[in-house]
Amino acid sequence: MEQLLALFSDYTFQIVALGTGFLGLLSGVVGTYATLRKESLLGDALSHAALPGIALAFLLIGKKDLVYLLGGALISGLIATALIQWISKKSTVKFDNALSVVLSSFFGLGLVLLTHIQGLENANQAGLEKFIYGQASSMLLSDVQLLLAVGAGILVLVLLLWKELKVFAFDPVFTQTLGFQTRILQFILSAMIILTVIFGLESVGVILMSALLIGPAVAARQWSDRLGVVLILAGLFGMVSGVAGTFISSIGRQIPTGPTIVLVLSLIVMISLIFSPKRGLIIRWVNQRRKKKAYIKQIEEKQERSEKYAR
């Protein structure tokens, strides 16, 4: 117990838990829109596509300043999104195929640049690879402050554009007929996803970021049919898994934070899929059995009646 108290008052733990918790909240909210637009894998592609941007930004300024690196990631992420949308809209190429080609060639470019950087005589370069796996424990107060500022901006934007984003998420064509600029909305949504993803890169890494976008949204979707409730729940689930993952990885020895967060999140998703009172697997099974029984009863009654009639 004392150990726990000591942990909670630990400065590093507070910072990291605050960072991952807020990141979880943010990706829960943004991820809900992404999954509603059926673009949840875009997050996965973007997190890979951010790598060349990070490497290029480092090459240009020569030091590891988080703001510039994230700026580079933002730009290469936007380019990748535009490419994916362009290819899949202007040709018969399927969205998935465009996604995987862009993802791997951008990641390849990132590796090429990183290898080049490693060959340079620059002492600053060490640690750029941490963007691939993420290293939550190395979060600094300034990083968390930046995350809080940008994240709060995104949340305010979501509130301000509430009805626009809502109608766009469910029916983009209808949105256009209402006179909203769908292109601008698409851009805002993409930018929000990219910003969230690149903040996640630092703490959970390229590969696990997609889980953080999709997981909370899917889990929250099982408990409600209303967008507002789903958003709040998704944010909550994301936050809980962020904090719980950080907690578990700090009490155990040699447990990486990012993967632990994903494990906790997957547990929440599984519980939601199985136990949700409206759509869950258990309630579905019960309903099916009930229906089957009712149906058998119906048939039996019919049989009885026809037998009576025959007599």
């Binding site: 949840s40 949204a217 990486p256 494990l263 759509r279």
Partner: peptide, 27 residues
């Protein structure tokens, strides 16, 4: 199960497996 969209299913399963692998490796 139709409880989640096709791409969400992909995005949930592979990070989970991958996380387990990373945890096993580091430990």
């Amino acid at each position: 199960t139709k409880l989640l969209s096709n791409d969400s299913a992909i995005g949930i399963v592979f990070p989970l497996f991958f996380s387990i692998a990373i945890i096993l490796i580091t430990r």
